[in-house]
Amino acid sequence: MDIMPMNRVQAAEYVHWTYEAPYTFYTIPEEGIEETYKDIFSDSANHYFSVLNKGRLFGIFEYAVSANDFEIGLGICPQEMGKGNGRAFVSNCLAFGRKHFNYQGVIKLDVADFNQRAIHLYGQLGFSETGREARLSFGKPVTFIKMETEQADFFLSYQGC
Protein backbone atom coordinates (compact mmCIF):
# COMPACT_ATOMS: atom_id res chain seq x y z
CA MET A 1 0.00 0.00 0.00
CA ASP A 2 1.06 3.55 -0.66
CA ILE A 3 0.49 6.54 1.61
CA MET A 4 0.43 10.07 0.21
CA PRO A 5 -0.96 13.48 1.17
CA MET A 6 -4.64 13.56 0.22
CA ASN A 7 -5.36 15.34 -3.04
CA ARG A 8 -8.66 16.82 -4.27
CA VAL A 9 -9.66 13.77 -6.33
CA GLN A 10 -9.14 11.46 -3.34
CA ALA A 11 -10.95 13.89 -1.02
CA ALA A 12 -13.94 13.96 -3.39
CA GLU A 13 -14.12 10.18 -3.23
CA TYR A 14 -13.63 10.06 0.56
CA VAL A 15 -16.40 12.55 1.42
CA HIS A 16 -18.89 10.44 -0.54
CA TRP A 17 -18.15 7.09 1.09
CA THR A 18 -21.44 5.50 2.16
CA TYR A 19 -21.43 3.02 5.02
CA GLU A 20 -24.07 0.42 5.84
CA ALA A 21 -25.62 -0.13 9.28
CA PRO A 22 -24.43 -0.09 11.97
CA TYR A 23 -21.68 2.19 10.61
CA THR A 24 -23.88 4.75 8.80
CA PHE A 25 -22.64 7.30 11.37
CA TYR A 26 -19.37 7.44 9.40
CA THR A 27 -21.11 8.52 6.18
CA ILE A 28 -20.50 12.26 5.87
CA PRO A 29 -23.89 13.96 5.43
CA GLU A 30 -24.40 16.32 2.49
CA GLU A 31 -24.36 19.34 4.81
CA GLY A 32 -20.98 18.24 6.24
CA ILE A 33 -19.09 17.81 2.97
CA GLU A 34 -17.98 21.44 2.62
CA GLU A 35 -16.84 21.52 6.26
CA THR A 36 -14.85 18.33 5.69
CA TYR A 37 -13.18 19.75 2.55
CA LYS A 38 -12.21 22.86 4.52
CA ASP A 39 -10.71 20.69 7.24
CA ILE A 40 -8.73 18.59 4.76
CA PHE A 41 -7.27 21.52 2.84
CA SER A 42 -6.93 24.18 5.56
CA ASP A 43 -3.63 25.24 7.06
CA SER A 44 -4.67 23.78 10.41
CA ALA A 45 -2.76 21.28 12.48
CA ASN A 46 -4.68 18.42 10.79
CA HIS A 47 -2.89 16.41 8.12
CA TYR A 48 -4.84 14.05 5.84
CA PHE A 49 -3.24 11.17 3.98
CA SER A 50 -4.67 8.76 1.43
CA VAL A 51 -3.90 5.07 1.74
CA LEU A 52 -3.89 3.52 -1.72
CA ASN A 53 -4.07 -0.15 -2.67
CA LYS A 54 -3.18 -0.77 -6.32
CA GLY A 55 -3.92 2.88 -7.06
CA ARG A 56 -7.38 2.84 -5.45
CA LEU A 57 -8.34 4.76 -2.31
CA PHE A 58 -8.42 2.11 0.42
CA GLY A 59 -8.47 4.34 3.49
CA ILE A 60 -7.48 7.59 5.11
CA PHE A 61 -5.15 8.59 7.91
CA GLU A 62 -5.63 11.89 9.73
CA TYR A 63 -3.12 13.34 12.17
CA ALA A 64 -3.88 16.30 14.43
CA VAL A 65 -0.53 17.53 15.66
CA SER A 66 0.06 20.24 18.23
CA ALA A 67 2.67 21.07 20.84
CA ASN A 68 0.73 19.08 23.47
CA ASP A 69 -1.10 16.37 21.54
CA PHE A 70 -0.80 13.83 18.76
CA GLU A 71 -4.21 12.49 17.77
CA ILE A 72 -5.10 10.14 14.94
CA GLY A 73 -8.24 9.55 12.95
CA LEU A 74 -8.58 6.84 10.37
CA GLY A 75 -11.05 5.07 8.16
CA ILE A 76 -11.25 2.20 5.71
CA CYS A 77 -13.46 2.58 2.64
CA PRO A 78 -16.85 0.89 3.06
CA GLN A 79 -16.13 -1.88 0.53
CA GLU A 80 -13.09 -3.06 2.49
CA MET A 81 -14.55 -3.02 6.01
CA GLY A 82 -14.84 -6.32 7.87
CA LYS A 83 -12.27 -8.14 5.75
CA GLY A 84 -9.61 -8.55 8.44
CA ASN A 85 -7.48 -5.56 7.46
CA GLY A 86 -8.03 -3.51 10.63
CA ARG A 87 -5.02 -4.57 12.69
CA ALA A 88 -2.51 -3.93 9.89
CA PHE A 89 -4.27 -0.70 8.90
CA VAL A 90 -4.20 0.79 12.42
CA SER A 91 -0.65 -0.42 13.06
CA ASN A 92 0.48 1.23 9.83
CA CYS A 93 -1.32 4.45 10.75
CA LEU A 94 0.60 4.55 14.03
CA ALA A 95 3.95 3.63 12.49
CA PHE A 96 3.61 6.04 9.57
CA GLY A 97 2.58 8.88 11.88
CA ARG A 98 5.49 8.28 14.24
CA LYS A 99 7.98 8.19 11.37
CA HIS A 100 6.53 11.04 9.28
CA PHE A 101 6.17 13.43 12.22
CA ASN A 102 9.22 12.10 14.12
CA TYR A 103 7.01 11.56 17.14
CA GLN A 104 7.61 9.09 19.97
CA GLY A 105 5.07 10.10 22.62
CA VAL A 106 1.49 9.26 23.55
CA ILE A 107 -0.97 8.81 20.68
CA LYS A 108 -4.64 9.63 21.23
CA LEU A 109 -7.83 8.83 19.37
CA ASP A 110 -11.60 9.12 19.77
CA VAL A 111 -13.96 6.32 18.78
CA ALA A 112 -17.76 6.31 18.75
CA ASP A 113 -18.99 4.24 21.70
CA PHE A 114 -21.17 2.01 19.51
CA ASN A 115 -18.19 0.85 17.43
CA GLN A 116 -17.33 -2.17 19.55
CA ARG A 117 -15.29 -3.78 16.78
CA ALA A 118 -12.90 -0.80 16.64
CA ILE A 119 -12.78 -0.41 20.44
CA HIS A 120 -11.79 -4.06 20.78
CA LEU A 121 -9.07 -3.73 18.12
CA TYR A 122 -7.65 -0.56 19.68
CA GLY A 123 -7.48 -2.36 23.03
CA GLN A 124 -5.57 -5.22 21.43
CA LEU A 125 -3.11 -2.69 20.02
CA GLY A 126 -2.35 -1.18 23.40
CA PHE A 127 -4.87 1.66 23.65
CA SER A 128 -6.76 2.19 26.89
CA GLU A 129 -9.81 4.29 27.68
CA THR A 130 -9.06 7.64 29.31
CA GLY A 131 -12.54 9.17 29.30
CA ARG A 132 -15.78 9.77 27.45
CA GLU A 133 -17.16 12.86 25.80
CA ALA A 134 -20.66 13.55 24.51
CA ARG A 135 -20.70 15.95 21.57
CA LEU A 136 -22.38 16.69 18.27
CA SER A 137 -21.00 15.25 15.04
CA PHE A 138 -22.62 16.86 12.00
CA GLY A 139 -25.55 17.74 14.25
CA LYS A 140 -26.01 14.26 15.67
CA PRO A 141 -25.35 13.53 19.36
CA VAL A 142 -22.74 10.85 19.93
CA THR A 143 -20.57 9.71 22.80
CA PHE A 144 -16.92 9.25 21.99
CA ILE A 145 -14.55 7.09 23.99
CA LYS A 146 -11.19 8.79 24.38
CA MET A 147 -8.27 6.36 24.15
CA GLU A 148 -4.50 6.63 24.18
CA THR A 149 -1.41 4.50 23.99
CA GLU A 150 2.27 4.84 24.76
CA GLN A 151 5.00 4.00 22.28
CA ALA A 152 5.20 0.34 21.33
CA ASP A 153 8.12 -1.20 19.46
CA PHE A 154 6.00 -2.88 16.79
CA PHE A 155 4.60 0.51 15.73
CA LEU A 156 8.00 1.91 14.88
CA SER A 157 8.50 0.44 11.42
CA TYR A 158 6.00 1.08 8.67
CA GLN A 159 5.66 -2.09 6.59
CA GLY A 160 2.72 -1.25 4.34
CA CYS A 161 -0.72 -2.78 4.79
Rank of each mutant, 00 (worst) to 15 (best):
R56T: 00
P78V: 02
V9T: 10
Q116H: 14
P29S: 08
S66Q: 13
A88I: 05
F154E: 15
G131I: 01
F49M: 05
A11I: 02
L136M: 15
T27G: 07
M147Q: 04
A88L: 14
G126E: 01
Q124T: 08
P29L: 00
N46I: 10
F49L: 06
H100R: 12
T36I: 05
Y19K: 02
A45Q: 14
Q116G: 10
A21L: 09
S157Y: 12
T24P: 13
M6N: 05
I119V: 13
L52T: 04
L109T: 02
H100V: 06
V15K: 06
E34R: 11
I72A: 10
F138T: 09
M4E: 14
R117C: 08
F154T: 03
L109R: 05
F49E: 01
R117T: 06
S137G: 05
T27L: 05
T130P: 00
T24L: 14
V142C: 13
F101M: 03
F114G: 00
K99W: 03
Y158M: 11
V15A: 01
G73D: 13
A134I: 06
S157H: 14
F155P: 00
M1H: 02
V51A: 12
E13G: 02
L156Q: 13
N68L: 15
G105L: 06
A64K: 15
I107Q: 04
I107A: 07
Y63N: 03
H100S: 10
Y26M: 00
N46V: 13
